[in-house]
C-alpha cells in the first residue's frame, strides 16, 4: 500500500502540471508548450495503475475544462480515454525503451488534441492548422527527461 508520503509527490507533480497548463504564454510560444497534464497523468498511470486510473484522468480533465473555460467534459473525455489506454498497456509501456515510449506519448497527446479539436469543431467553428499538432511532438521529445525526473521524485517519496 502507498503511504501518505508516497502520495505526496504525486499530488505535488499534478499540481505543478496544472500550474504549467494555466500559465499564460506569449502567443508565439503556445504551440511549443508541452501537454503537461497528459504527460504527468501517463507517468503516474504507468507507475501506480491501481491508484491513478480512469477516474483520476476524468477528474483532472474536468479541472482543466474549468481552468480553460472550455465545454465541461471535453478534456474529461479525452483524459479518461488516455488514462484507460495507459491502464491497459502499463506493463508493456514499462518494458519498452524510452524512445519507444516517446513515440507512444506523441500518439496519446495527439489523441488528446484530436478529441479536443473534434469536439470544438462539433460545437462551433474550429480550424486545425499544422501547428496545432506541435505540442504532441514537443511532449514526446521532453518525455525521456520528464520520465527520469518523475522517477526520481517518486523514489524520493517512497518510504521503503
Amino acid at each position: 500500500m502507498l503511504s501518505v508520503l508516497g502520495s505526496f509527490p504525486l499530488f505535488l507533480t499534478v499540481l505543478i502540471a496544472l500550474f504549467l497548463t494555466g500559465v499564460s504564454l506569449p502567443e508565439q510560444f503556445v504551440p511549443y508548450w508541452p501537454d503537461w497534464i497528459v504527460l504527468v497523468l501517463i507517468y503516474w498511470g504507468m507507475a501506480y495503475p491501481g491508484r491513478v486510473s480512469v477516474f483520476s484522468g476524468w477528474l483532472l480533465g474536468l479541472l482543466v475544462d474549468v481552468m480553460h473555460g472550455s465545454l465541461l467534459g471535453q478534456n474529461a473525455l479525452a483524459l479518461t480515454l488516455i488514462s484507460y489506454t495507459v491502464n491497459v498497456l502499463h506493463l508493456r509501456m514499462r518494458m519498452s525503451p524510452l524512445l519507444q515510449q516517446s513515440f507512444f506519448i506523441m500518439f496519446l497527446v495527439a489523441v488528446h488534441l484530436g478529441i479536443t479539436a473534434w469536439i470544438r469543431g462539433m460545437t462551433g467553428v474550429f480550424v486545425v492548422t499544422p501547428m496545432y499538432w506541435m505540442p504532441a511532438i514537443i511532449s514526446g521529445v521532453i518525455w525521456p527527461v520528464l520520465f527520469v525526473m518523475l522517477r526520481d521524485v517518486r523514489r524520493s517519496g517512497m518510504t521503503r
Binding site: 486510473s53 480512469v54 476524468w58 465545454l71 473525455l77 479518461t80 480515454l81
Partner: peptide, 20 residues
C-alpha cells in the same frame, strides 16, 4: 476498469450535452 471507463465516458458526454 472497462466498466468504469464506460461510465465516465457517458458522464463526460452527458456533461458536454448539458453544458452546450
Amino acid at each position: 476498469v472497462t466498466l468504469r471507463v464506460l461510465i465516465l465516458v457517458a458522464a463526460s458526454i452527458a456533461l458536454m450535452l448539458v453544458d452546450n
